[in-house]
Computed example of a mutant assay.
Amino acid sequence: MLERDGRDGRTEVTFVLPAGTPPGPVGDFNEWKPGTRELTPRPDGTRAVMIAPAAAASHSFRYLAAGDYWFNGDIAEGRPDGNSHLTT
């Protein structure tokens, strides 16, 4: 799930996944560098990370879970290249 919030002329995007699905640590939106940004637990049991990407831009992304398991977001637009896509 993606949560969007506009602040000071910028768009903040929070990537949210259920707790434990998939199991283990999950990273996201980090220029394909594993371990750079990891989703952290929230009080409601979900895991999340917030980023503030460049305004009015298109971004491709995938999640990377433990065991080198790459997967796409469930709400983001799918792309022919196999990545999820986000427009801010």
Rank of each mutant, 00 (worst) to 15 (best):
residue 78 G to I: 05
residue 52 A to M: 07
residue 78 G to L: 12
residue 79 R to K: 14
residue 79 R to Y: 07
residue 65 A to F: 09
residue 46 T to I: 13
residue 53 P to H: 11
residue 73 G to Q: 12
residue 32 W to T: 13
residue 44 D to G: 00
residue 7 R to I: 01
residue 78 G to H: 11
residue 33 K to C: 11
residue 59 H to S: 01
residue 2 L to T: 05
residue 87 T to A: 13
residue 38 E to L: 15
residue 19 A to G: 10
residue 11 T to I: 14
residue 51 I to Q: 09
residue 84 S to T: 00
residue 82 G to E: 01
residue 82 G to S: 03
residue 23 P to G: 02
residue 39 L to H: 06
residue 4 R to C: 10
residue 11 T to M: 15
residue 29 F to C: 09
residue 82 G to T: 01
residue 29 F to M: 07
residue 11 T to R: 04
residue 68 D to V: 03
residue 4 R to D: 04
residue 62 R to N: 05
residue 18 P to K: 00
residue 83 N to W: 10
residue 61 F to V: 05
residue 17 L to I: 07
residue 84 S to H: 06
residue 77 E to I: 05
residue 43 P to G: 06
residue 73 G to K: 14
residue 88 T to L: 13
residue 3 E to G: 10
residue 28 D to Q: 08
residue 24 G to E: 01
residue 70 W to I: 11
residue 87 T to W: 09
residue 30 N to F: 05
residue 47 R to A: 10
residue 31 E to Q: 04
residue 60 S to D: 09
residue 41 P to M: 14
residue 26 V to F: 15
residue 10 R to I: 02
residue 1 M to Q: 07
residue 36 T to G: 01
residue 76 A to D: 10
residue 23 P to K: 02
residue 69 Y to A: 12
residue 42 R to Y: 00
residue 32 W to Q: 12
residue 88 T to F: 06
residue 35 G to N: 10
residue 15 F to H: 08
residue 70 W to Q: 08
residue 26 V to M: 14
residue 9 G to L: 03
residue 19 A to E: 10
residue 81 D to Y: 00
residue 70 W to N: 06
residue 77 E to V: 05
residue 77 E to L: 10
residue 47 R to H: 11
residue 67 G to Q: 14
residue 66 A to P: 01
residue 16 V to M: 12
residue 9 G to S: 01
residue 16 V to I: 14
residue 41 P to Y: 08
residue 80 P to R: 14
residue 35 G to Y: 04
